[in-house]
Structures are given as structure tokens and as C-alpha cells.
Amino acid sequence: MNKSFLKYTLLGIGFSFLYFPIFALIIYSFNESKRVMVWKGFSLKWYGELFKNEQILESFYISLKIASMSATFATILGVMAGYSLARISKIPFRPFFIFISTAPLVMPEIILGLSLLLFFISSNNLFGLPSSKGQLTVLISHMTFSVAFVAVIIQARLFGFNKSIEEAAQDLGAVPNSVIWKVTLPVILPSIISGWLLAFTLSLDDLVVASFTTGPGANTLPIVVFSKVRLGLSPEVNALSAVIMLVIVSIAVGYYIKIRNKSDVN
């Protein structure tokens, strides 16, 4: 009794700490007042403002575009990298490859962003490419750190599954290329999907690297939000948080129901 009391108290405190600020933000998003903290009554006014704010809407569109492209390309590259790390032993300078494919995981964003910006500028000076900073440079930067995250997920999954499944396919007559397409990739498909989702959120969430590598016409949502909240509060951002929360919670609930049903079947 005593023990489970301690357990639930601790879990309760922990989870309220995680959720309290988010819920407070959602509640304040319904505040009539322009001054965020002074409650003047319930209103959906700021949701209206949010959906009329072209700057936010456009940056949201840009962010979605960059995030989905970055996630897709990073997943392709990350699956290749993860597979190489887990299954191919003859890689020239293997320790170096391991280093460059895991170091982006822990490299501080500010250093990553700075290095990529200086790289784009130098490359522009030398080759004239990229001709200017913009969505492409942000995309390349986001892909670069996302690859490492996807590679880690894929590598862990491949270490986790028995290599004999791939050998069995070969034994049954599948040539190496066919083993990859018909066995390895389908088996690790759930990890590929979670890799894509992670890469997507990383890109959608990134402020620092994007701030360094962005250019005209490539203001992502975090950049716009940051400029709005840097010096003060913004009721539209409250409304935006509530919308994002709603989307994520409904995805999570859907997912939870799905896995619960699945475990009921078993």
C-alpha cells in the first residue's frame, strides 16, 4: 500500500510537471484579452486571428514542405547508413564512417548551424552553388542531422533481429538484392516509419539550424514563432500551441487504441 502510494505520487508529480505548462497554455489560448496573462473571459478570437495570420500560415506551409521532404530523403539515406553500419563490415575507414554518422546526434545545434552556413557561403564563393540561401539550404541541413537519427533507429532494429531470417531468404534462392527488398526492408518497416516520423518532427521543430541556413522566402514556423515570442508574449502563439497539441494528442490516442486492440487480440 505504502509502496504503491509512493509510486503513484511520484508518477503523478512527474506527469503534472510535464503537462501543467502545456495545459496552462491551452487555457490561456481562450482568453479574450490581448494581454496574455489577464483573464477577460472565454473567446475563440485568437484562433480566428491565427488562421488569418498569413505570415504564420505561410511559414507553416514552408515548414511542412521542408519537413516532409527532409524526412523522406533522410529516411532513405538513414536506412542505407543504418544498414551499412549493422550489416556491412567492409567499409573503407569504418571508424570514421561510424563517427560521422553518429556525431550529429550529439553535436550542439549552434555548431551544426554555424558550420553549415559557413559551408554554404564557401561553396557559393568557390562554385557559385548554392546560388542563394533559402529552402534548399534549410532542407539539406535538416536532412544532415536527421540522417543520423534514422540511422541509429535502423541500426538498433537490425541488431535486434536475427540475421538468420536474411540467410533463410538467401538459402531459399533470393539473390542479395532481392533479400533486401523482400525481407529486410519489410521486416524493419515499422522502424522505418518511426524514423520518418522522428525526422519529420526534428525538422518541424528546429529553430537554430534553420536560423543559420535560412534565406529569403524560407522562414520556417519556428523562426516566425521565435521572432514573435522573443521579446514578449503572443496570444496567437497560444492558440497555435493548442492546435498543435490537439493534432498530436489525437494521433497519440489513435495510436494507443490501435496497439491496445492489437494486444487484446493476442
Binding site: N162, I165, E167, A169, D171, L172, S178, P186, L189
Partner: peptide, 25 residues
């Protein structure tokens, strides 16, 4: 052909597709 100790059946395929895998290859 070899039968593995762990059986190494393909988790993403059903029974008949597991059996037909080699013939399809």
C-alpha cells in the same frame, strides 16, 4: 536448403507466403 534452429520464418508474411517464398524466387 537449411532449416534454422530459430526457424527464421519471415514475420511479415503469412504461412502460405512463407512456404511459397522460395518458389517465387
Amino acid at each position: 536448403n537449411i532449416m534454422f534452429q530459430s526457424y527464421a520464418l519471415f514475420p511479415h508474411l503469412n504461412v502460405s507466403n512463407n512456404i511459397a517464398f522460395g518458389l517465387k524466387e
